[in-house]
Amino acid sequence: MYLDFEKPIEDLDAKIAELKAASSGTGAGPDPQIEKLEQERSRVLKDLYSKLTPWQTVQVARHPERPLLRDFIAGLCSEFIELHGDRHFADDQGIIGGFATIESHRLMLIGHQKGRTVEENLRCNFGMARPEGYRKALRLMRLAEKFRLPVVTFIDTPGAYPGADAEERGQAEAIARNLLEMAALRTPILVVVTGEGGSGGAVGIGMGDVILMLSNAVYSVISPEGCASILWRDGTKAPEAANALKITARSLLDLKVIDEIIPEPAGGAHRDPQGTMEAVKKALMKHLRRFQGLSSKKLAARRMEKFAAMGRYR
């Protein structure tokens, strides 16, 4: 699948395929024309992705083939034992979590789960968690604290589920409670924004000691569409809103909201999931090692200070 702005790549791919089809079965060696086109393709791809607009970045972050939580789990973890339920109401599938092993590190992995098929998305509600999802996440974080395991969260959600049942069971309280408890949690919390960081639903598991972000992920207080329809009174002005909202990894690093950008392979994470896994693993390893053996009380105090400094302009 090609995104709108990938038309030049689509054209090149078509040409390459055409030439390959024509030359197949001729028994000739490598076609220099194809090689030239392929070089051209990787140059154009790199160029396109080096100057994505914020709105194009949104499209990449939401790309249907972009690696999802389960791909990260499969690609990063030698073991993952999912733990279910919030012990109060249900086992939300919009947020899942469990014990995980990455290289030699045992940890608690928690993240938003999106699906690819309709059935999957019905089950995990497109990654829009209900209160019980946030409460399950908190239960697992408490467990991690108890057994001195670091917490790693993966963020990829359009937002917390805006449904009547979610309101009834206290969506606001569930997110607020997580923030209160994460502030004081006595174990390291590493956050990776992998796709869409959708507002309160994202930050509800996003209060970490270190916040990493894939280079084509986005993180925002409101979706560009939502912002456009409120401030521009026109949902089609989403590209303008995406610009104004400063939602790209680069902007967030400048605003000191995130700590580090994890570069994606050329052409985006969806073109090279394996390369993406390696980049994420490398970054995680670095920070997991950094936090080993740190005093957990000091850690929580530093986490609070870190967030206290955000938006302090005096």
Binding site: A176, V203, V221, A244, K246, I247, V257, M310, G311
Partner: peptide, 8 residues
């Protein structure tokens, strides 16, 4: 934007 979200 994101700065206001981080006030949560």
């Amino acid at each position: 934007g994101i700065v206001s979200l981080m006030q949560m």
